[in-house]
Design a protein around this nucleic acid. Structure first.
Lengths: 108, 108
DNA sequence: TTAATATATTCGAATATTCTAATATATATG
DNA sequence: CATATATATTAGAATATTCGAATATATTAA
């Protein structure tokens, strides 16, 4: 079957399925370029681990690298990524609120 | 740190990070109710496996179940989920196209 | 109540993801 | 060229996800 597109779609979404990468996208959401060392300071991650997460996002095409001297600057490849990011966040927060309401009602 | 929100956001996105669940969301995208057995026919999945994937989506609040006799009907909990779904798909397809162009240019 | 049907849950093996430590590469500086 | 700096890659252990088989639960029909 033509299930390749489901696989590809899922692979792209894996970029968003890890809290460190969510945090990185949040740092990159201004659309500007940020160096790896800057991101390292902001996240407190180990060098290798940060580089691996950036690599995952880069391989999936979610971020774009650009060399500047010995630094590599990263930016988000497409602003739509942030739009989707924010929509999921809003679904999440709506869910959390309705769960809190349910909890309250069960206790009463 | 207030990193809980990154964890929650990532957990919600995990719903989208598996090709079977992407396929299921695609079947549910009409917003209507679909029984488990209907989804089973449409996907060809084993009963347990399908139920597990529906359980993952249900626990995260991405789909809502409703009993009707001995069937359980599922529907998407929030239309925004499909909006985000489609945005990611469009980012993906843009990426694929630009990669194909790059491949072509390297060969020439 | 017993049997049949529809769905969910549990268990354990197979596979995938993540992390840390070590090593490699590319650029700049003396 | 030799050294320092910034980033990337590799290897392997720890953890998480996925699947199929078996079992459990809820509803309906006989």
């Amino acid at each position: 079957m033509g299930d390749d597109i489901y696989q590809l779609h899922a692979e792209m979404c894996k970029v968003f399925s890890n809290p460190i990468r969510i945090k990185l996208l949040n740092l990159l959401r201004d659309g500007k370029e940020h160096s790896v060392s800057e991101l390292q300071k902001a996240t407190g991650l180990g060098q290798a681990n940060l580089s691996q997460h950036l690599g995952i996002m880069r391989h999936k095409g979610a971020v774009l690298p650009k060399r500047k001297g010995r630094q590599i600057l990263y930016r988000i490849s497409d602003k739509k990524i942030i739009v989707a990011f924010d929509i999921i966040r809003s679904v999440l927060s709506k869910n959390l609120k309705s769960r809190q309401r349910m909890l309250k009602n069960e206790v009463l």
